[in-house]
Design a binder for these strands. Structure first.
Length: 863
RNA sequence: GCGAAAGUGGCGGAAUUGGCAGACGCACCAGACUUAGGAUCUGGCGCCGUAAGGUGUGGGGGUUCGAGUCCCCCCUUUCGCACCA
């Protein structure tokens, strides 16, 4: 053992020992409980960043702890290796995307290995390999056969920077998910879709089974995204015309309050009015104007409601009333039927619109016990969602409470053939085609006679050609004759391969199923092996995937269940969304974003202008507020970096990088090293039975066992690594205290010291495995600490010898009494009332009552 | 606007069920050792006060013997959703 702690040297050595001993390799073993610890796989961009290090340090600590407490732990890592940057690099540098990607993977794997993460590298996967993506193709063919995949000409989101279409989830708020400043365009395109809407109900309802294991934030984001709304569709006949307007409403009970109908400017009714020349000039120009505005602008906050009367009338099927038909900007074509009935009395938007255009307002809902005038003019919409509200002015349904009226009126509409119950969702089918070349080819062939024909399964994978030409205006795949031209598998005639590729979110929808059986050539995975490991016990990753990856992967699980591969409904039992790694930003007028080292005394290093230190923000290359993990590891060692990240904040909170605190973490490890080095030199002797323990030794043993108890809870149950580290620091401080007064001739003292140090080193292993391993060897062990048995908690030894019971008078702290730990309430009371200090404080006052919280506190109420 | 989470020293954060507020660390202060220290060790460190003591978990009210924790109102911050019919 070296006197000084040299992290980089020991880290490499210990990593080698682990690799040689293959201790992180796990296989099916029915004799032990199993635990699947999973972290979101990285995109091989070239370098790992601090966000990765944090994410993986959390998972690594948990995996190590679980392994040490007897679990068979699956802890894999892989690469989300298809995607745009590789293709862009190919275009820019005339490189090959596969080579670019593999180089990056190799570099990043080396980096991850330098941090010393305990992965089973045998199970590594890269989604860009044919061995992997052939199963994407296989899944698509199964989905096609089951009617879960279809092709349709549709309006899709298009990002000009990505030069491809995007799924709705990837175009939230009208901007591309990869390019936050690039608004998406709409294009008409023939596309592949996965029938998500078949699963919308399940995706929503099953969220209820995740409430204990998933953050509420993610659940509510998914609920919002799925956006189920239950209501009814109702047909309104058009006065003097054939055909009907079908509307969607969640409040059919308010239909007697309808003042007008409003259709979207794109509605077929408006189109046909214009086509037949019956539209007014005002209507025509309004529609023209609206079609020039994007949906996002049209529904942006503060946009005034505008509309035009079409001149037509609709007949309310419930009461025969004639209602003018309007078109307006706030009615959208993409939701419901693109047409609504406007009920101004009970909807804020409708109120605003009808008030503006002087349309009548009729109240049809009142609160329970309402005793005012039903026909008195409302000054604002009455929108109470209270189920006890009563329907009025509504013919035979008047007097019913809202839920009953909705049920009865929906039934009436259905019975009379002009409506039916209907559930609407915001979530849309998943558009999975991408017009890019670096992705999984779609395994379909377009034949002039046979239509769309799946590639026969025994011909999978459909491999991506390696000799694509990226310097072309068109699509590289479509221009590759060898790829495109093929014979139809059914009729044998000349046909064309589909030249789109799959959304890369397909790859990540099921990658962790592949880890359980990564070499399988018959199926994506062996259902039996998956049944052993899955579902994932703990998944750890960023919040940014709340409605992207995390909804797709839930969908995929349900599809795989329906394909008979698995039997469970949800893939992930527990989800932890870790916070971001942040750092202060600095900005100079001349040189834009500055690295903190480029700022000297608040001035830009280059030009001397004031450099404003801004707020802390997520580390990003563009803001130049990044810290390179490799540099930090070179300076402090991987253990220090990991310790800092786990200690500085609870995992779900954002973490601000703090150089001083990193040094603090380093100082702590040096402190542990020093005390163990000292006793390594002196020798601690062997364990001896039947020794007498001094007060100090008993105290240290107590702390040791209390710490074992605490940290097991902190890591295993609460996943609060920060308090776990704090507990280890306390134990270390206690060891230092004891070290000052230890009697080297006393076997009990040496035993207590050794016990404390061994426990400390073991408990450090999940956080700082390298130094723990090195110190474990110094303490005379030949086995590996990262797979050693977790220290055993002895409740007897952890018990306090005396309790300091706080005493309150009228709820105010007034002193303490020291009593035996097994004291009963009566004896505790006596001890308190015989305490001179307490007696003096009570003085002449009369004791009203005394509250005793057993073994914790006494409160005396006096007056 | 709706919904959720949060607000504790100079800072990051503890306080597991309503029971000693501020664990642990950073920064800072004082001292020791040293040729030297950005090493190490010892001590201090919420605020007011020399002290005794008082006061204190965003603000106000409440429940309770007792509230950072529970309830009501308000303020602030962050996040999500937002003409969704």
């Amino acid at each position: 053992m070296n006197e000084k702690y040299f992290p980089t040297e020991i880290e490499e050595r210990q990593q080698q020992r682990w690799a040689e001993a293959k201790v992180f390799e796990a296989d099916v073993d029915e004799s032990r409980p199993h635990f699947y610890c999973l972290e979101m796989l990285p995109y091989p961009s070239g370098r790992i960043h601090m966000g990765h290090v944090r994410n993986y340090s959390i998972g690594d600590a948990l995996a190590c702890y679980k392994r040490m407490t007897g679990f068979n732990v699956l802890h894999p890592m892989g690469w989300d290796a298809f995607g745009m940057p590789a293709e862009n690099a190919a275009i820019k540098n005339n490189a090959r995307p596969d080579e670019w990607t593999i180089e990056n993977i190799n570099a990043m794997r080396t980096q991850l290995q330098r941090v010393g993460f305990n992965y089973d590298w045998r199970r590594e996967i890269a989604s860009c390999t044919p061995e992997y993506y052939r199963w994407n193709q296989w899944f698509f063919i199964q989905m096609w056969k089951h009617g879960l995949l279809y092709r349709k000409n549709a309006t899709v989101n298009w990002c000009v920077k990505c030069n491809t279409s995007l799924a709705n989830e990837q175009a939230e708020g009208g901007f591309c998910w990869r390019h936050e400043d690039v608004p998406v365009e709409l294009r008409q395109l023939e596309q592949w879709f996965i029938r998500v809407t078949n699963y919308a109900d399940q995706l929503l309802d099953d969220l209820d089974t995740l409430v204990d294991g998933w953050p509420e934030r993610v659940l509510s984001m998914q609920r919002n995204w799925i956006g189920r709304s239950k209501g009814a569709e109702v047909d309104f006949a058009i006065d003097g015309e054939s055909g009907v307007i079908r509307i969607f409403t969640t409040r059919i009970d308010t239909i007697f309050g309808a003042s007008c109908m409003i259709v979207a400017p794109e509605h077929s009714l408006v189109e046909s009015l214009i086509a037949s020349g019956k539209a007014s000039d005002e209507l025509k120009s309004f529609v023209e104007k609206q079609s020039a505005i994007t949906k996002e602008d049209r529904i942006a906050e503060g946009t005034e409601k505008e509309g035009v009367n079409t001149g037509l009338f609709a007949i309310n099927p419930f009461n025969g009333e004639k209602l003018p038909i309007w078109t307006a900007n706030f009615v959208l074509t993409g939701y419901g039927t693109g047409a609504i009935m406007a009920v101004p009395a009970h909807d804020e938007r409708d109120f605003e619109f009808c008030a503006k255009y002087g349309l009548s307002i009729r109240r049809v809902i009142v609160p329970a016990g309402f005793d005012g005038d039903v026909n008195e003019a409302l000054t604002e919409a009455y929108t109470s969602k209270d189920e006890s509200c009563i329907v009025v002015n509504t013919g035979e349904w008047s007097g019913k409470v809202v839920p009953e009226a909705i049920a009865a009126m929906t039934a009436y509409a259905q019975a009379n053939g002009f409506g039916e119950a209907q559930t609407n969702f915001k979530i849309r089918d998943w558009g999975v085609s991408r017009q890019r070349a670096w992705g999984t080819p779609l395994p379909f062939i377009h034949c002039a006679t046979c239509g769309i024909v799946p590639v026969p399964e025994n011909q999978l994978p459909v491999e991506l050609p390696k000799d694509l030409n990226f310097n072309t205006q068109g699509a590289p795949l479509a221009e590759h004759a060898g790829f495109v031209n093929v014979n139809c598998p059914t009729c044998g005639a000349a046909a064309r391969r589909d030249t789109d590729t799959m959304d890369t979110f397909v790859d990540s929808s099921w990658y962790y199923f592949r880890y359980v059986d990564p070499k399988n050539t018959e199926l994506p995975f062996d259902p039996k092996v998956a049944a052993y490991w899955m579902p994932v016990d703990q998944y750890i990753g960023g919040i940014e995937h709340a409605v992207l990856h995390l909804i797709y992967t839930r969908l995929w699980t349900k599809i795989m269940r329906d394909l008979g591969l698995i039997t469970f409904d949800e893939p992930v039992k527990n989800l932890l969304t870790q916070g971001m790694v942040c750092l202060a930003t600095a900005r100079c007028e001349e040189h834009d974003w500055l690295n903190p080292t480029e700022v000297l005394d608040g001035k830009c290093k280059y030009c001397g202008r004031d450099a404003k230190i801004g707020r802390t923000e997520k580390m990003s290359k563009s803001k130049k507020n990044t810290i390179d993990p490799d540099e930090m590891i070179n300076t402090f060692g991987a253990d220090t970096v990991r310790l800092f990240m786990l200690f500085a904040a609870p995992p779900e909170k954002d973490l601000e990088w703090d150089d001083a605190a990193v040094e603090g973490a380093s100082r702590y490890l040096n402190r542990v090293w020093r005390i163990i080095y000292k006793w390594h030199e002196k020798g601690l002797g062997g364990r001896e039975q039947g020794v007498e323990f001094s007060d100090g030794a008993r105290r240290l043993r107590r702390k040791t066992h209390q710490t074992i108890h605490r940290i097991s809870n902190d890591i295993g149950t609460r996943m609060n690594f920060n308090t776990g580290v704090a507990a280890l620091m306390e134990l270390t401080n206690e060891i230092y205290d004891f070290d000052k007064k230890v009697d080297e001739a006393n076997a009990g003292d040496l035993f207590a010291l050794k016990e404390a140090m061994e426990a400390l080193v073991k408990m450090l292993a999940p956080f700082t495995p390298h130094i723990a391993e090195e110190l474990w060897a110094s303490l005379g062990h030949n086995d590996l600490v990262v797979v050693a048995e977790w220290p055993v908690y002895d409740a007897e030894l952890a018990k306090e010898e005396a309790l300091e019971i706080p005493v309150q008078i009228n709820g105010k702290m007034s002193g303490r009494v020291s009593v035996a730990p097994e004291i009963d309430d009566e004896a505790l009371k006596q001890a308190v009332f015989s305490d001179e200090r307490i007696k003096a404080k009570i003085g002449e006052r009369q004791i009203v009552k005394t509250i005793v919280v057993p073994k914790r506190l006494v409160n005396i109420v006096v007056k």
